[in-house]
Measured scan of single mutants.
Amino acid sequence: HAATELTPEQAAALKPYDRIVITGRFNAIGDAVSAVSRRADEEGAASFYVVDTSEFGNSGNWRVVADVYKA
Protein backbone atom coordinates (compact mmCIF):
# COMPACT_ATOMS: atom_id res chain seq x y z
CA HIS A 1 0.00 0.00 0.00
CA ALA A 2 1.24 3.46 -0.80
CA ALA A 3 1.94 6.08 1.83
CA THR A 4 -0.79 8.72 1.87
CA GLU A 5 -0.36 12.47 1.71
CA LEU A 6 -1.54 14.36 4.80
CA THR A 7 -3.34 17.69 4.95
CA PRO A 8 -1.57 20.53 6.81
CA GLU A 9 -3.96 20.00 9.73
CA GLN A 10 -3.22 16.28 9.94
CA ALA A 11 0.54 16.87 9.72
CA ALA A 12 0.41 19.49 12.48
CA ALA A 13 -1.20 16.97 14.84
CA LEU A 14 1.46 14.30 14.31
CA LYS A 15 5.18 14.04 14.99
CA PRO A 16 7.28 13.01 11.99
CA TYR A 17 9.91 10.32 12.52
CA ASP A 18 12.05 11.37 9.58
CA ARG A 19 12.49 13.94 6.83
CA ILE A 20 13.28 12.89 3.30
CA VAL A 21 14.61 14.93 0.41
CA ILE A 22 14.27 13.86 -3.18
CA THR A 23 15.53 15.58 -6.28
CA GLY A 24 14.51 14.97 -9.84
CA ARG A 25 12.92 16.26 -12.96
CA PHE A 26 9.15 16.40 -12.47
CA ASN A 27 6.66 17.63 -15.07
CA ALA A 28 4.09 18.53 -12.43
CA ILE A 29 3.77 18.69 -8.66
CA GLY A 30 1.69 15.53 -8.81
CA ASP A 31 4.69 13.67 -10.24
CA ALA A 32 6.85 14.90 -7.37
CA VAL A 33 4.21 13.87 -4.82
CA SER A 34 4.06 10.40 -6.39
CA ALA A 35 7.85 10.09 -6.10
CA VAL A 36 7.71 11.14 -2.44
CA SER A 37 4.93 8.63 -1.81
CA ARG A 38 7.03 5.83 -3.30
CA ARG A 39 10.10 6.79 -1.22
CA ALA A 40 8.02 7.09 1.96
CA ASP A 41 6.51 3.68 1.23
CA GLU A 42 10.00 2.16 0.79
CA GLU A 43 10.93 3.52 4.22
CA GLY A 44 7.86 1.96 5.82
CA ALA A 45 6.02 5.23 6.37
CA ALA A 46 2.24 5.27 6.59
CA SER A 47 1.95 8.88 5.46
CA PHE A 48 3.89 11.96 4.45
CA TYR A 49 3.57 15.71 4.18
CA VAL A 50 5.43 17.80 1.59
CA VAL A 51 7.14 20.59 3.51
CA ASP A 52 8.89 22.39 0.67
CA THR A 53 9.44 22.29 -3.06
CA SER A 54 12.00 24.35 -4.89
CA GLU A 55 13.42 24.42 -8.38
CA PHE A 56 17.15 24.04 -8.95
CA GLY A 57 18.14 26.94 -11.21
CA ASN A 58 16.49 26.75 -14.61
CA SER A 59 17.32 23.11 -15.24
CA GLY A 60 13.84 21.78 -14.52
CA ASN A 61 15.15 19.76 -11.58
CA TRP A 62 13.19 20.00 -8.37
CA ARG A 63 14.11 19.45 -4.73
CA VAL A 64 11.21 18.16 -2.65
CA VAL A 65 11.35 17.96 1.14
CA ALA A 66 8.79 15.87 3.01
CA ASP A 67 8.21 14.75 6.58
CA VAL A 68 7.28 11.09 6.96
CA TYR A 69 5.07 9.53 9.63
CA LYS A 70 4.67 5.99 10.90
CA ALA A 71 0.96 5.60 11.61
Rank of each mutant, 00 (worst) to 15 (best):
R25V: 10
R25T: 10
V21E: 06
T53M: 15
L14N: 09
S59N: 12
G60L: 05
D67R: 01
E9D: 10
T23S: 08
A71Q: 13
T7V: 03
R38F: 09
V50D: 01
V68M: 12
W62L: 06
S54V: 12
G57V: 06
Y49A: 05
A28D: 15
G57K: 07
R39E: 04
A2E: 10
S37H: 09
V33C: 09
A2V: 13
D52M: 13
A11K: 03
A45T: 05
Y49D: 01
S54T: 14
T4D: 06
E55H: 10
G57H: 08
V65K: 01
N58A: 13
F56H: 08
F48S: 01
Y17A: 01
N27V: 09
A32R: 03
V33I: 15
V36Y: 02
R38W: 06
N27L: 11
I22E: 01
E9R: 07
V33G: 03
A13W: 12
A35F: 07
S59A: 11
D31G: 05
D41S: 15
L6S: 01
T4N: 09
L6Y: 01
D31P: 03
A2D: 07
H1Q: 11
S47D: 03
D67M: 11
A71N: 10
V50M: 07
G57I: 06
D52S: 15
Y49S: 04
A11D: 03
V68A: 01
A13S: 13
G57W: 07
S59V: 08
K15M: 11
Q10Y: 04
V68G: 00
E9M: 09
L14K: 09
K15E: 10
D67L: 15
F48L: 00
D67A: 05
E5Q: 13
N61T: 15
N27E: 12
F48D: 00
E5G: 05
N61L: 15
D67K: 03
G60W: 05
A11H: 04
S54E: 14
A35G: 02
A35L: 06
F56P: 06
E9N: 09
S59Y: 09
T4F: 14
L6M: 06
Y49Q: 01
T23K: 06
K70V: 09
D18Q: 13
V68K: 03
R38T: 10
A13K: 14
D52L: 12
V64F: 03
A45R: 00
V64T: 01
S59I: 09
A11F: 03
K70H: 13
A13C: 14
D41F: 15
E55P: 10
A45L: 05
A71G: 10
V33S: 04
G24Q: 02
P16S: 04
R39V: 11
A11G: 02
S54N: 08
Y69S: 00
